[in-house]
Computed example of a mutant assay.
Amino acid sequence: MMNRLRQIADAVRAAGEMSVADLAELTAASEMTVRRDLETLAGQGVLERYRGGARSLLLRGEETPFALRSDDGVATKRRLAAEVAALIADGEAVVVDGGTTCREVARALRARRLTVLPLSLHTANALAGGAQLTLLLPGGEARPGELGLVGPLAEASLAALRFDTAVIGCCGLTAADGLTAHDLPEAAVKRAAMRASRRVIAVTEGAKLTRTALAHVADAAALDLVVTDSAAPAEARAALEAAGTVVRLVAEA
C-alpha cells in the first residue's frame, strides 16, 4: 500500500493534479481504492481532494512526508546502514541524524556498546532499549511528521558535547553545492552536529548525488566519508572525490 501511496503522490505532484480514473489506470487499482488512498494522502497534507480527482499541495523541491518515504528502498537503506555501522567502533560517542536512512543506521547500532545522541524522535525510538547502549536525548522542537529535533535547545545540546562520529543524512549532495537539506532549522542542527564531531560520515541513496535542496549545510570537503549505493552516477562520485571527499560504494545484494 505504501508504495502505491508514494506512486500516487509523485504522479499528482508531477502533473499538478490528476483524476481518479487516471490514477486507477496508473496504479492498476480500483477507483474505490484510489479514493481511499487520496483520503489518506489528504490527511497527511500531501494533496487536496476534489470531486473526481486531486491536486498536489507539495511545492517543487519540498520534502516528501516521512511516512511516504519510510518504506522506499528499505533493502538499500539497510545495506547502507550496515556499512556505516561497520565503520563505528564499540565505545564511540556518535550523533545520528534524522530521516529514513539514518533511522536504519540507528537500528543497526541498537545492540552495540556505544553512546548515541539521535537528532529525531524516529531515530531515538529505533535506538530505545539497547542493553549496552547509552542513549542521550537532545532538547529542541520536534518538526511535524519528520520529528527531527530543531531549534536553539537542540543546537545548544550539541554544542555542549563532543562526538567521535556524526552520521548525517542529506536531501541532496553534489560537489558544486555540497550537502543540502530542505528545511532551514534542520540544516542548522546538522551543522551543529558536524562541528561537534571529529569525523563526519554522510549516508545517502545514490540518486541524491544529483540533487540540490534549498538549505546549504556544508561543502563536500567537510565530509570525511560518503557512503552510498550503485545508483550514484560515476561522474557525481568522481566530482565528490575530486573535491576531497572519500566515497564508499555499497554493492547490491
Rank of each mutant, 00 (worst) to 15 (best):
M2C: 00
L5Y: 13
Q7D: 14
D10I: 05
A11Q: 14
V12N: 03
A14P: 08
A14T: 13
A15Y: 06
G16R: 06
D22P: 01
L26K: 02
T27R: 11
A28I: 06
S30A: 04
E31P: 02
M32I: 00
V34L: 08
R36K: 09
R36S: 03
R36T: 07
D37Y: 13
A42P: 00
V46T: 10
E48H: 01
Y50W: 07
R51N: 01
L57V: 01
L59C: 09
G61E: 03
G61F: 01
E63P: 01
T64I: 09
T64H: 03
P65I: 06
P65M: 10
P65Q: 06
F66N: 11
R78N: 00
L80R: 09
L80Y: 13
A82N: 05
E83C: 10
E83S: 14
E83K: 14
L87Y: 05
I88V: 08
A89D: 09
D90P: 07
A93L: 10
V94W: 04
C102D: 02
R103S: 01
L109P: 01
L109K: 01
R110S: 12
R113P: 12
T115M: 02
P118R: 08
S120G: 04
A124W: 00
A124V: 07
A126E: 07
L127R: 00
A128V: 05
A128F: 01
G129N: 03
A131S: 08
L133D: 11
T134M: 12
L135T: 13
L135D: 01
L136Y: 08
L136S: 05
L136C: 02
L137C: 12
E141C: 09
E141M: 13
A142I: 04
R143P: 14
R143C: 11
R143F: 07
G145A: 11
E146N: 09
G151A: 06
P152Y: 06
L153H: 13
A154E: 14
A160Q: 15
F163S: 08
F163T: 06
A166Y: 05
I168N: 02
I168T: 02
G169R: 00
G169C: 09
C170T: 03
C170S: 13
T174P: 08
L179M: 12
T180W: 13
H182A: 13
D183E: 15
K190S: 02
M194N: 03
R199D: 00
V200R: 06
V203F: 11
T204I: 04
E205N: 14
G206R: 15
A207T: 11
A207E: 15
L209H: 15
T210E: 15
L214M: 12
L214E: 12
A221I: 00
L223N: 03
D224H: 05
L225Q: 13
V227P: 06
E235H: 14
A238K: 07
L240Y: 14
A243V: 00
T245V: 03
V246H: 15
V250H: 08
E252F: 03
A253T: 05
